[in-house]
């Protein structure tokens, strides 16, 4: 359990127009022992000092495999979870320690879309009341009345406005995701955190929803944090991508660079593992196989967390945590031995 805080020197250049800025944010979940006292015996280090920012109209993709902390990161920057450490700024204002109540007005500006369109909609509420809930919570009275506004929103996301009084179970998975999207854009937010928004959908429906998200972004100049495990989808929609592993950002760069010239060995393995829908390309492709399993986030490896599975690991990797640093203009990596490779 050494060498945790030394890494806090990593620097991601500050962009003046940042909408959301996240600095060294940590999220630990305490583990308590049995018995009466519930003594704390350790922490699950779900997110370990991550830094990034998002500018208006931009999509930041966050990719990584299960257990890498990407969903926790999304919930923490939304302040649905309280960060253990670090700083979160929204439009230049420090929101790290705002209470739930103080956050309410800010919810107009930042919204969330969830993976499971089945469990994120109340089955006993009509679509109309689900989509209009943000108006009620925020005390907003649309000039033309709530129903007209909601029906406009429904039309905008490709739902039939006449279905205003129907219940979620009368809609298919793709349509339910559209309901979730209509609710998220109701108050014209500036930022939407999308947590695996298309993972539960069939391919043809997935493409419809991705296109809708892109259209809404152009129309309202929305910023997205797009969290997903599917690298092809993330690459398609994102301007920049953060690759996470065991709670840390391993690499952060423009989408093109993450796929065409990744520098981090984990990104190499990840991008090479994605099968392309192109049989001829597949036959000649080099695949970097990782061995072993993801280490426990309770007791992560010393030094670089990826070293136990890294084909390039050396002694230094066990001793020193690699800092996320700028390796090429706008291209950040946390590796002692970065190397550009072309794998697609």
């Amino acid at each position: 359990m050494t060498a945790v805080d030394e890494s806090n020197t990593s620097v991601v250049a500050r962009r003046a127009d940042a909408l959301l800025r996240v600095e060294q944010v940590q999220k630990y979940f305490p583990i308590t022992g049995g018995g009466l006292l519930k003594r704390k015996v350790g922490d699950v280090k779900a997110v370990e000092s991550i830094s990034f920012d998002v500018v208006p109209g931009e999509t930041l993709g966050v990719v990584g495999e299960s257990g890498c902390g990407k969903s926790t990161a999304g919930r923490t920057v939304m302040k649905l979870l309280d960060p253990t450490g670090g700083k979160i700024e929204f439009e230049g204002r420090d929101i790290t320690h705002l209470s739930r109540k103080e956050m309410v007005p800010l919810r107009r500006e930042m919204q969330m879309i969830f993976q499971d369109p089945y469990s994120s909609l109340n089955p006993r509420h009509t679509v109309g009341s689900i989509i209009s809930a943000p108006f009620k919570v925020q005390g907003v009275k649309p000039t033309r009345g709530v129903q007209a506004e909601v029906q406009d929103l429904m039309a905008r996301v490709g739902l039939n406005p006449e279905h205003y009084n129907r219940y979620p179970n009368e809609f298919s998975g793709g349509q339910r995701q559209r309901i979730g999207i209509a609710r998220a854009i109701a108050l014209r937010p500036k930022l939407i955190v999308c947590d695996e928004p298309v993972s539960a959908l069939d391919v043809s429906i997935q493409a419809q929803v991705v296109n809708l998200l892109e259209d809404l972004q152009d129309e309202f100049r929305l910023a997205y944090i797009f969290i997903a495990h599917d690298l092809s989808v993330v690459r398609h929609i994102s301007d920049r991508i953060a690759v996470m592993y065991l709670g840390r950002i391993m690499e952060l760069a423009e989408s093109e660079r993450i796929y065409k010239a990744p520098l981090h060995p984990y990104t190499h393995a990840l991008t090479s593992a994605v099968p392309l829908p192109d049989p001829r390309a597949e036959r000649s492709r080099e695949r970097i196989l990782l061995h072993g399993d993801l280490p426990s986030p309770i007791n992560p490896p010393s030094g670089c967390v990826f070293r136990t599975r890294c084909p390039k690991a050396q002694d230094r990797c066990a001793q020193e945590i690699p800092v996320l640093r700028e390796l090429a203009p706008g291209h950040y990596g946390a590796c002692h031995f970065p190397e550009e490779r072309h794998l697609i």
Binding site: V203, I205, A207, R235, T271, P277, A281, I344
Partner: peptide, 21 residues
Amino acid sequence: GLLGSVPRMDAGRNERLQPIP
């Protein structure tokens, strides 16, 4: 439709997906 719906990691990023309606 299926082939047009899949985002391709090896294609240009700005190509719009062609979903099946």
